[in-house]
Structure formats: structure tokens, C-alpha cells
Amino acid sequence: SIKASMDNSALLRQGWKTLWTNPFYWTRNAIKSFQDIGKTIGGKNVVDEVILTIFKSPNSFTAEDIVEIACHGGILITQRVFEEILNAGAKPSGPGEFTMRAFLNKKIDLTQAEAIQDLISAKNKFALKAASNQLQGCLSNEIKSFQKVLIDIAAILEVSLDFPEEGLDAIETKSLIDNMKNILNSMQKLSDTFEDGKVIKDGVSICIVGSVNVGKSSLMNAILKKDRAIVTDISGRYVFSIWKDGIDIQIARSFDFGQTWTTIVPALGAGTLPQIVTDSSGRYVFAIWVDGTDIQTARSSDFGQTWSASTNLGGGLVPQIVTDNSGRYVFAIWD
């Protein structure tokens, strides 16, 4: 869908103001003939049939008058509708502009504005839930509760300073101290959740360490439930990655410690459960995978630039391949 803020004077001059007569406006030929909206959008050529939904101030997300145009989901259709709206005088919004307007119009606070980006970029269900809770104002409400308690404490202290003759008896003093301790403890607990929240949002980086060809890639694939492996020569300069892409086995290589990558074309062939190994220099590289019920293997002797035709080793599953530091001796096993 496409959102348009109705503070745009050019759109208002073209008659879009009449949209506000109905909370929900629908027309079978909305882009074909916007006669009751003003000047025809799209000329005589039908672009699409759309639904227009009206969000009137101050109840919209940004607290401004907004119209949302729901067109069909094709990229070309959306682009054409967008072009016609721009031709009518609208301006494209900048990144995060609607969120910024909502913040400036006090519809959301800064923590909720940040939560919108966290919601969009969430990588797992826990990050999604945390961002949703923050967007609903859970963090904001907790901070506001701290502010209220602190303001109450500050007011009592100011009164005692302005009117010292009234004074604070021992019971009131103890209660005040207890309240301050409680609020400090609560604030510290909230602060302590920062690291947990960072892990939920960004995840954790782990390193699987072990000798050459002991099954590090197999362990990684078992954890991630993906068919992917990566190996390097002893210096780390030459890096090779193998994975399942659709039905094909793809290999990519890097000659600069993994900074830039080149995918080998064509793919090695169709298959699953790929594994890859290299000798200590990175010159000799060996791949193994399953094609249907057969074990296939291929080799490269020029740092992964070109590959031999695959060799069928026979029927089997879950293959593993290892080589020595020279690349002269290569061993394959499978179930």
C-alpha cells in the first residue's frame, strides 16, 4: 500500500479534500477516474483498481490527515500508481519520515520510535516480541513510573527545605529513604536487562574451534539445520564456502581473507549435504555431496577457480571428506 500525508497543498488543490467526507472510500475505477477526488489520475488509461482508506487527524499514526492507497501487489502496478501520485503534486517521503512525524506530533516517544526499527529488523521471535512490547509502551511506562516516584520524593524534600519548621519526623524520613532505595533497585534491575536485550536483538557470536577436518562444519550444519560449510587454508587467506542453493550445489571463494567473494559458475550440480576441504596452501580443494542417493565428489587444483567433472562414488548418505596438508591423500566416508 501507499500512504500519502494530506498536508501536501498540491494534492489538496487537486480536490483530494473531498475524501474526508467518508471515513472509508472505495471506487471500482479509482485510478481510472477520480472525478470526485479532482483531476483524473492516470488519464484515460486504467492503471489499477484500488481501495482508499482515510485516517483523519488526530487519530492516525502521525496525528495528521492521511490517505492509504491499497493497490494490487505487483511491482509495476505499485510503481505506476506511485508515479501518478507524484505527478499530482505529492513528494516522496524520506526514510522513517512517518515515524519521525509521529514522534514530533507526540504520538510516540523516542523509545517507541526506536522499537519500530527493531520490529522491522527483528531476526527471531524473541526480538520480535521485545520490539512489540517496547512499541506498546512497556519501557516508556516503566520509565514514567520512575519519574513519578522521583518527582514525589523531590516534592517532599523541597517542602521540607522551604518550611523547615514543619520538619520530617523519623517515620516519614525512613519511608522516604525506603522509597529511594526501592526506586534505585528497580532502576538497576531495568538497567541490568540491557545485555539480555542486546543478545535477544543482535544474537551472539560463537566460534567453533578444532583441528582440521574434525567435523566443525558438520556440527555447524547440525546446529543451523542448513547445508553449508566453509574452510580456509592454514594462513586464512584463501576461503572456500559450499552450500545448497535451491537444488544446486554452489561454491564461492575468497582470496583476501573473506573480504570479497566470487561464486564459481557453473554450479557443481544438483544435490544436498555438501562438504568441502582444502590442503594447507589452499591450492587443492575437494568437495563432496549427495545427488539423489549417490555420493558425488569433485576437485580443484587451482585454488578453486576451475573444477573437475563430478565423480560418482556410489550409493550413500551423509558424506564426509578429509585431506592431509599436502592435498595428496584424500579420504571420503559415508553411511
Rank of each mutant, 00 (worst) to 15 (best):
S218T: 05
V47H: 01
G215Y: 10
S186N: 15
R13S: 05
C138I: 09
T272S: 06
L86S: 02
F257M: 09
D196Q: 05
N221L: 00
M100S: 08
G316W: 12
T293A: 15
I230Y: 03
Q320Y: 02
S1N: 03
E64I: 13
S132H: 12
I153K: 13
E97T: 01
G74N: 11
T278K: 08
A113F: 01
I171V: 14
K125Q: 10
R28S: 11
R13V: 11
V277L: 10
F126T: 11
N133W: 11
G271W: 02
A102F: 01
N213I: 07
H72Y: 15
E83F: 01
S145F: 00
V50Y: 13
T21L: 06
G315C: 03
G73V: 01
S160P: 14
D169V: 07
I234Y: 08
R80F: 02
S9G: 08
V330T: 02
L135T: 09
S191A: 14
I120H: 15
K189M: 12
V214L: 12
T193A: 14
I206S: 10
N221R: 09
D162M: 03
W334S: 04
F98M: 10
A115E: 08
N22F: 06
W16E: 02
I51Y: 09
N59Q: 14
I321T: 02
P164N: 00
D227E: 05
G73A: 03
T99E: 11
G246C: 07
N87Q: 13
I321N: 02
A267W: 06
Y284P: 00
D109S: 04
L190D: 07
I264G: 05
L224V: 00
R299W: 07
S218D: 04
I321L: 12
D256N: 15
F163E: 09
N179C: 14
L104P: 01
G215K: 09
I183A: 06
P23A: 06
W243L: 05
K189C: 13
N124Y: 05
I85Y: 04
N325G: 06
P164T: 00
M220K: 01
S308P: 02
S235K: 08
R328L: 05
T293D: 15
I200V: 07
I177N: 08
Y329M: 00
I75V: 12
A113K: 08
I295N: 02
W20R: 15
F24N: 08
S205H: 03
K56S: 12
W334K: 04
D233V: 05
